[in-house]
Design a protein around this nucleic acid. Sequence first.
DNA 1: TGCCAGGAATTGC
DNA 2: GCAATTCATGGC
Length: 281
Amino acid sequence: MDVQFTLPYVYDFDRAIVRLAGDPVNSVDLQSRTIRIPMEEGNCVTLQSIGTKQLPSFIVGNAIDAIQIEKVKSIFHFDKPLDAIGLHFAGTDLGSLFMEYEGTPLIKSFSLYGTLMKSIIHQQLNLSFSHTLTKRFVESFGEMVDDVWRYPSPERIAALDVLALRDLQFSTRKAEYVIGLSQAIAEGTLDLEQLIGMDDDEVTSKLVAYRGVGPWTAQGFLMSGLGRPNLFPLADIGLQNALKKVWNMDRKPSQDEMRTRFPEWSPYLSYAALYLWHSIE
DNA sequence: TGCCAGGAATTGC
DNA sequence: GCAATTCATGGC
């Protein structure tokens, strides 16, 4: 089924998909302003923008049912007007960023498991190489449906030998993290869906208990995987570099220096982080 | 070429 | 407890 709808508020879809296109695993066509979303049910739903930032309008195509359409709307936060958030930052040190990137949404990832794997793969690697690694990971062990790659099942990765990932140029430790976490998920010890119903602190303590998952990864999962609005990964080099620029410093700010701004930015820390990432991309 | 990269675990004191 | 070191390799 196909559905067309409009949003009654500013929404910068083009800026959002340019960022998504930075990850080669995503199937984005900037020309036609379309993204293809691999759904758990096995099909791919298309989301195409036919409007403007001021008058956002979209077509959702190839959905199996109305539930899938709602899922897509939830992933893209179509139900969350951004003007209140922009107003919240007006007058703060990030005010000009929020004017420049007005209407830029926080988009949830398409797979909770994939977010976690990608996050571990990205630890301590430059973006270019980390994208190469995730692409290899997905194309080696995942599957392609309707010309769109999707992350492998946890079961598939749980059964791998460390050497299989070493072949893709994973470090031994990173391979152990990825396999170990996949085993916990495959066994049912760790239920990612269950985390949806927990608050940020509960999710963090559940995830950090696993080897390879630290604060940065847990915060990234909350932000990108679950779409939570109030996370700011202090350990993130990109955010440190972005703030160095915004604050016109000759060095990266310390975690304490960044943390002092939290009262002002809360309860929208995730948006502060998102817009800072946009500012350096 | 050497330092850094959208960290985390381990070791050392 | 907290700081220093290790991991592992590409990118610039």
